[in-house]
Amino acid sequence: MSVLEAVIRSVAVVAAFLVLPLLVGQTEHKFMAHMQGRLGPMYAGGWHGWAQLIADAAKFVQKEDVIPAAADRGVFRIAPAVALIPYMAGLAFIPIGDGIVGADVPASAFAVLAALGVGILGHLMGGWASANKYSMIGAMRGAAQLVAYELPMVLAVASVALAAGTLSLSGIVEQWQPWWLLWQLPGAIVFFIAALAEINRTPFDMPIADSEIVFGAFTEYTGLRFAFFLLAEYAGIVVMALLFTVLYLGGWAGPLAASLGVVWTLLKAWIIAAIIVWMRVSWPRLREDQLHRLAWVWLIPIALFQLALTAVVVVMTR
């Protein structure tokens, strides 16, 4: 890999990291509005408010960066970066087409999971350093949630990796067959629920439950740092949707995959993201104890069952 290629790939990943979350955000704006009988943003940019999120970013840049007097300033400052960068790293490992990937590593499935697990550290740091009880509660909820849902998620991914016989996401897509949709269905459901919980989306948004604890770990944040946290949240949706597409929906598999592969991947991921938005509009938030009950009583047994099923089928067919 030459230096030029590395630079191009890095720039491409950063561009995707900045653009795709905005697309998801705009989708959320519009879907949410129409699902509630509204129109959503209509002004910014002229056509149906397409530039609303860019305008929001411009607004956030102008805002004052307030740091609470009692806060731990250093930790408070770097927390948004710690929350944001793991998602960027995760995005770099996910292929969106045959050979189109930021960094093609042998164990990319594992690498994405490892990167995503670090993201919560930013919430924890921000929540603790804000010197605010709501921030603290939000951070603790987020950490407990992550620890609870990381396990079923890793087990579900392990099942797919076992089925494909590789830890590489590109390899998994190459091995993917349409009948895996049924074979890996329990794992897919577990992965989807765990992914929702990891990125704090409704119905698992207790860490930022605005009606209970203001805005969780982000309560004290303003301006650009707050925007970074929000960007991390939407980047989380992008990463999870792409990962789900690649693991369970065959990535770029589809008609004319050779030329339209990237379009297929992005379209599938966009549909997943739209479903995530749809759930946010439709469903209430779970209670904290229900969240943990769901993880430990339902998801982990189902994930273990899926792993066993996959192992049995793999052993029988090979």
């Binding site: 699902m35 509630q36 509204r38 439709s282």
Partner: peptide, 20 residues
Amino acid sequence: LAGGLRTTARTMRRTAITQE
């Protein structure tokens, strides 16, 4: 849960009531 999804989907098909 399905009922919730159905309700929002149905609202989405209707015209928005927003007055511009």
